[in-house]
Measured scan of single mutants.
Amino acid sequence: MEVRTIKVFTTVDNINLHTQVVDMSMTYGQQFGPTYLDGADVTKIKPHNSHEGKTFYVLPNDDTLRVEAFEYYHTTDPSFLGRYMSALNHTKKWKYPQVNGLTSIKWADNNCYLATALLTLQQIELKFNPPALQDAYYRARAGEAANFCALILAYCNKTVGELGDVRETMSYLFQHANLDSCKRVLNVVCKTCGQQQTTLKGVEAVMYMGTLSYEQFKKGVQIPCTCGKQATKYLVQQESPFVMMSAPPAQYELKHGTFTCASEYTGNYQCGHYKHITSKETLYCIDGALLTKSSEYKGPITDVFYKENSYTTTIK
């Protein structure tokens, strides 16, 4: 009895394709271990004539594949690729409408935090270190965002349907971005203890939790000093293409032309909904596939993004 075979390709990165001759009487799992086709788990399936010449994702289970996976995804987590594939199996079914010149995501599976993050990423200057993220990001900007969303979920250790947080998501993504040249110098002034300067680099240099107003941050924000008295913390120097200011959701007025974009969060910790506000020729609110415009805006804002380049204080 002759062994019926077909020729397929296996890959971990969709760049390096490895030619395989597979036995049609055995499952993919018996031949390769966990195997995925377009995100779908085909591990328990036997090869079919229609699979001839198709590319299958496999887990990096030998040295060659491990090197290829690390170079593309910059992670050695053995569960990463499987999590990416199972997320992709959902995100490829989502709709990605162009809204006001940006790629958004039609609401499904509690994905409003991903839509808000995706919209924000198209408006701030950011370059990702893992080629996987950078490639998928370019495709997302062009309207094909399924891979990018699935990668975000995998890097953030999230599953489809789980509630997510924009600030946490951005923080994970910033860790995989090139923020080497970003720098922030802060000064804390206390009447009792004097003053202390701190220099922050990388992710810490672009994120701040405690106030939404970048102007206020430049002037000074009140913080408790270690001595128990009130101290003032203010920005001395900022070198970065953008800054992200966050605070627990509270009524906040966004003035046209003073910011790049913002995240609105309605609801409580267990259950809520994100919308995205962007400042173009007027203010726009993007909620999944829905767009509304207004000249002014007041609502429960939790993150505001500002364009920056270089700032030095005039406070002496």
Rank of each mutant, 00 (worst) to 15 (best):
V3I: 15
R4E: 15
T5C: 13
T10Q: 12
V12F: 08
N14W: 08
N14V: 07
I15N: 09
I15E: 10
L17A: 07
H18V: 10
Q20N: 11
Q20G: 12
T27L: 09
Y28G: 03
Q30H: 15
F32Q: 11
T35M: 10
T35A: 06
L37C: 12
V42N: 10
K46C: 12
P47D: 04
H48F: 12
H51R: 05
E52P: 10
G53R: 13
K54L: 15
F56D: 05
P60M: 07
D62Q: 10
D62A: 09
T64A: 11
L65R: 11
R66W: 10
V67S: 15
A69F: 12
P78H: 13
S79N: 06
G82P: 14
G82Y: 06
R83G: 06
N89A: 11
N89Y: 10
T91M: 04
W94G: 01
W94L: 01
W94Q: 04
G101F: 03
T103S: 05
I105L: 06
A115I: 05
A117F: 03
L118G: 05
L118N: 01
L119A: 04
Q122M: 05
E125C: 07
L133H: 01
Y137P: 03
Y137I: 10
R141E: 06
A142C: 15
G143D: 04
A145I: 03
N147S: 14
N147K: 10
F148C: 05
C149P: 02
C149A: 10
A150W: 02
L151G: 03
I152G: 02
N157Y: 10
K158R: 07
V160G: 05
G161L: 04
G161W: 02
E162F: 04
E162M: 09
G164A: 04
G164D: 03
V166F: 08
S171G: 11
S171Y: 13
F174Y: 06
F174I: 04
Q175D: 06
A177P: 03
L179K: 06
L179T: 05
D180V: 08
S181E: 15
C182D: 02
V185F: 03
L186M: 10
V189E: 14
V189L: 10
K191V: 15
G194H: 04
Q195M: 15
Q195I: 15
Q196P: 02
T198C: 09
G202I: 00
V203E: 07
A205G: 04
V206H: 01
G210F: 05
T211G: 10
Y214L: 11
Y214D: 02
Q216T: 09
K218I: 06
K218H: 04
V221F: 14
Q222E: 12
I223W: 08
P224K: 10
P224T: 13
P224C: 15
C225Q: 00
T226V: 14
T226F: 10
T226M: 13
T226S: 12
C227K: 00
K229E: 12
Q230I: 14
T232Q: 08
T232P: 01
K233Q: 08
L235P: 04
L235M: 03
V236A: 09
Q238Y: 01
E239K: 15
V243W: 02
V243P: 00
V243D: 00
P249N: 00
P249L: 00
A250C: 10
Q251D: 12
Q251W: 14
Y252M: 09
Y252V: 10
E253D: 08
K255H: 11
H256N: 08
H256E: 07
H256P: 14
G257S: 06
T260P: 01
S263L: 05
S263K: 01
T266C: 08
N268F: 08
C271M: 14
G272R: 01
H273V: 00
H276E: 00
S279Y: 03
S279M: 06
K280L: 11
K280W: 08
T282I: 09
T282G: 08
C285P: 00
C285L: 12
C285F: 07
I286R: 00
G288L: 00
L290P: 00
L290V: 15
T292M: 10
T292A: 06
S294D: 08
S295E: 15
E296F: 13
Y297K: 03
K298Y: 14
G299V: 03
T302C: 07
V304K: 00
F305I: 12
Y306N: 00
K307N: 08
E308C: 10
E308I: 12
T314A: 14
I315Y: 11
